[in-house]
């Protein structure tokens, strides 16, 4: 890929644009990034994007900020990371600075409330669309281990409110154990 001015502009513009329209927390922006960088631009592979998400989740700070740094680094090293992180923090910085002048009017505005309520439903649809694609990607390989892990992690998070850090640690550990278990049984198979 040619890394000219146009490429850097595209990288900055896409993070700026995603950040400016992302309501509803870190996972929403990750879903949008996946759609943009994996599906649309095909700059990053699906699995790699999930890895970067796992790292962003386990690093201190906002997930959206961490994810943008990782994607920027992946695309263009440290300059890329700085570019994407500024693209990500500029929209909230500008919007909040403007709103802070008249924030009570904004907060109490009925019109803003109606628009946001509509947008909430739209954001929910966007993230569910991405979720369907991601679940399909996990299940299409037809390996029982990742599918089982996904179901257990979901039950733990959704029904039992298990902390994200514990889920990440346990799944990482199980993943490491499983790869040694697999290679152990594979070697036995070779000898036989």
């Amino acid at each position: 890929m040619k890394k000219d001015i146009k490429f850097y502009l595209k990288l900055f513009a896409s993070t700026f644009y995603l950040s400016a329209f992302t309501f509803g927390g870190g996972y929403v922006i990750i879903s949008l990034m996946r759609k943009k960088f994996v599906d649309q631009y095909q700059w990053i592979e699906e699995k790699e994007m999930l890895d970067l998400t796992a790292i962003a989740q386990s690093t201190p700070g906002a997930i959206a900020v961490n994810a943008s740094i990782l994607v920027g680094y992946r695309m263009a090293g440290i300059p890329g990371a700085l570019l994407t992180v500024f693209g990500t923090v500029l929209p909230p910085l500008i919007i909040l600075s403007v709103i802070s002048v008249a924030y009570t009017a904004f907060r109490d505005s009925v019109m803003v409330g109606y628009t946001l309520r509509g947008m909430q439903a739209g954001v929910a649809a966007v993230i569910i669309d991405v979720v369907i694609n991601m679940i399909r990607n996990v299940t299409k390989e037809k390996k029982p281990f990742p599918i089982l892990l996904m179901i257990i992690a979901f039950i733990a998070a959704f029904f039992f409110d298990v902390s994200v850090i514990i889920i990440i640690l346990v799944c990482g550990l199980l993943g490491a154990i499983s790869i040694y278990y697999h290679s152990h049984t594979a070697k036995k198979g070779d000898k036989a």
Binding site: T53, V131, L149, G175
Partner: peptide
Amino acid sequence: GLRPAVVALI
């Protein structure tokens, strides 16, 4: 191990 966990969290 982390990839399916991330899908579950999202």
